[in-house]
Simulated assay, not measured.
Amino acid sequence: MGVDSGKALSQNPCLHTASLHAIHSIITFLQSKGLYQKDFARIFGMCPTILTSDVRSELNPVFNFLSKDLRVPEDNFRKVINKCPRLLICSVKDQLKPTLFYLQRLGFTDVHHLAYQDPILLVSSVENTLIPKLHYLVTLGFTRREAVEMTLRCPGLFTFSIQNNFKPKFDYFSQQMEGELDELKDFPQYFAFSLDKRIKPRHIQLVDNGVSMPLSLMLKTTDEEFHRLISQKNWID
């Protein structure tokens, strides 16, 4: 299957005692749900515990959740699982349903988008990941409502590290760029761009040329478009 057996065994010692019949049963079950043989190297490589899961009590409930709660048709199971293999190792009762409920309360009402674009949110811990990220945004000066609206516009905010992403990028934004909170509220995608490869170089070019522009233009434009905008001396913010 193309799986690193040494890595898989170290991450899932139960594989030492798993029978080939049991593993084959899991593979057969997943194939019955639409997954292809070529998908398994990546899926099992990321989540080797799937290979010792119980089909009836652990795997089947996940597909029922996809079907009933996220309204994913059976012929799209493969697309969702390949997007986020970790779904298969999550408890529906203890993880997936409570997290879906929390996200829906925040305003993530589009289950189609959650299933196909942001399933990573469903496998995130409410207590250890989602709530702390919202709290951190509030400590920056946003109201809770504003913080929630930012995550609705840019769900990736829930996946970024506070220490490695939010903090250094906000420090640069507030100290070097002297930006206003309203700018981040309007363009929370700022945190999705690389600080060293995108934010700093482009900000420095703007300063050197005495030009200012909205964050979205500064970061989203191609290099060619960005340099063209800088060359327009009559650029108006």
Rank of each mutant, 00 (worst) to 15 (best):
Q232L: 13
N12G: 05
G34V: 08
F191R: 01
L59F: 07
T109W: 05
M150R: 03
P155K: 06
V62R: 06
T129W: 04
T151S: 05
S67G: 11
R42M: 12
L106G: 07
G6E: 14
C14P: 08
D69E: 15
P73L: 15
C14W: 14
I26Q: 01
F44Y: 06
D182N: 14
K79C: 09
E127L: 11
F226Y: 09
K185A: 07
S32A: 10
T222W: 13
T222E: 09
K33M: 11
T49A: 12
M150S: 01
V123G: 03
I50Y: 02
K83N: 12
L100T: 05
M213W: 03
P61F: 07
R153K: 15
K83P: 02
Y172I: 10
L96M: 08
I230Y: 02
V62P: 01
T52L: 07
F170D: 00
K197I: 00
V62F: 04
N234P: 04
G107H: 06
R153M: 14
S10E: 14
A22V: 11
I236Y: 07
Q117L: 12
F166V: 03
E183S: 11
P214N: 15
L184R: 00
L195Y: 06
A8Y: 03
R105N: 15
K93M: 12
S67Y: 10
I131D: 07
D110L: 13
R86V: 05
R42E: 06
D237C: 14
G2C: 08
K7C: 11
I43G: 01
H24D: 15
F108W: 07
K33G: 05
V80G: 00
I162P: 00
L195W: 06
F187W: 05
E178K: 15
E224L: 10
S19H: 08
